[in-house]
């Protein structure tokens, strides 16, 4: 079966301080047509780089290896022109901070229509008409006036709706949404997410949704992939994650429940700080923070295993019985071994 998007054993190296450093390790994930897959993890775990790899938009000198395929076609041998065509038609990205990402010197109308005008030779007036229609669909009224305004004249929530509209105008099959509400006012976050998911669903577009908020991801994803230090450590459905998380990191994330209205990306209940892939020790990347660590954890990288339809990367996944709430395993130091 061909997937809409298939990322297969993707590794990415970026240059920092003149040295190549690994930021993604052996990342494999699929997205089906009209499916919503969330990437969840703490800051620096590699969520953004995963999404940017799909569009070949890594920082300068970034290198990727492994395979990315779209509708069964590998993108790895794409020329620049191929990439341009792919971005113009197949997959489009919603960036985290619309205030930074939307060019402040051009009018909203120009931002919304430039892809149509330059990539599809659409007449400017027709493109503006279309942009106005979509603006109304994402909940912006007085669209005609908005089109003539500049980005700084709109609030953050409005601007992110403009960003969503710009993606809908491209009519891609896949939306890559990189923390689309993290930079917004808490009062508008829920609205913006609702509009995004609603419009996406109406058009049967698939979405790779990035968030550090597992709760939010669970609310409307078909599947969730949990990332840690450049690895995907667990892929599961929201129901299964809640019933029985397989990876200790997922369990910790579930217990710490970062709420929608909190901006913090830290997990107060797990000691230690999140690592980037290049900082991770040999063996399991989570070993320094894991309450179940054993000798084998530092000896070898746990392979991915399939358990009850979920994918997990932990040596002890089969034997651990983890809970998703703090109360369920109170007094037992966060879980039990089956033994």
């Amino acid at each position: 079966m061909t997937h809409l998007l298939e990322i297969d054993h993707l590794s990415v190296d970026l240059v920092t301080h003149r040295r190549y450093r690994k930021v993604l390790q052996d990342v494999s994930i699929t997205v089906e047509k009209a499916e919503v897959v969330s990437l969840v993890g703490e800051s620096g775990s590699g969520k953004s780089m995963t999404a940017r790899s799909v569009l070949n938009l890594l920082p300068a000198q970034g290198k990727m290896s492994g395979n990315i395929a779209f509708e069964g076609q590998s993108l790895m041998d794409n020329t620049n022109k191929d990439w341009q065509r792919f971005r113009a038609t197949k997959a489009a990205m919603i960036f985290q901070d619309p205030r930074a990402s939307i060019n402040p010197v051009h009018r909203i109308g120009d931002f919304l229509t430039e892809a149509l005008v330059h990539n599809r030779d659409m007449d400017r007036h027709e493109a503006l008409e279309r942009a106005a229609t979509i603006l109304e669909q994402v909940g912006i009224d007085d669209a005609k006036r908005r089109l003539r305004q500049f980005p700084h004249e709109l609030s953050g929530g409005m601007l992110q709706r403009v960003m969503i509209a710009s993606v809908l105008l491209i009519e891609p099959q896949l939306i890559l949404a990189d923390e689309p509400t993290t930079a917004l006012d808490v009062t508008t976050q829920a609205d913006v997410i609702a509009i995004l998911d609603d419009q996406r669903a109406q058009r049967e577009m698939a979405m790779l949704f990035i968030t550090h908020d597992l709760e939010l991801a669970a609310a409307f994803s078909d599947r969730i992939a949990v990332m840690y230090a450049g690895y995907i450590v667990e892929v599961s459905t929201p129901a299964q994650l809640h019933a029985r998380p397989l990876h200790p990191y997922t369990a910790a994330l579930l217990r710490s429940r970062p709420l929608l209205h909190e901006r913090t990306e830290r997990l107060p209940q797990i000691s230690g700080r999140p690592l980037s892939a290049f900082e991770a020790p040999p063996g399991c990347p989570f070993q320094d923070r894991c309450p179940y660590v054993q000798a084998q954890c530092s000896e070898s990288l746990p392979p991915t295993q399939l358990i009850n339809g979920s994918i997990v990367r932990c040596h002890r996944a089969n034997e651990l019985e983890l809970a998703s709430t703090a109360s369920a395993d109170a007094g037992t130091e966060g879980g039990q071994s089956r033994e």
Partner: peptide, 24 residues
């Protein structure tokens, strides 16, 4: 960021350089 956004929309290098990089 604006240049990355423009590139992500599949705009050609010429458009990205003129309308976004150089203009800003």
């Amino acid at each position: 960021d604006p240049v990355m956004t423009a590139r992500s929309r599949g705009l050609s290098r010429r458009v990205v350089v003129q309308r976004h990089a150089f203009r800003n």
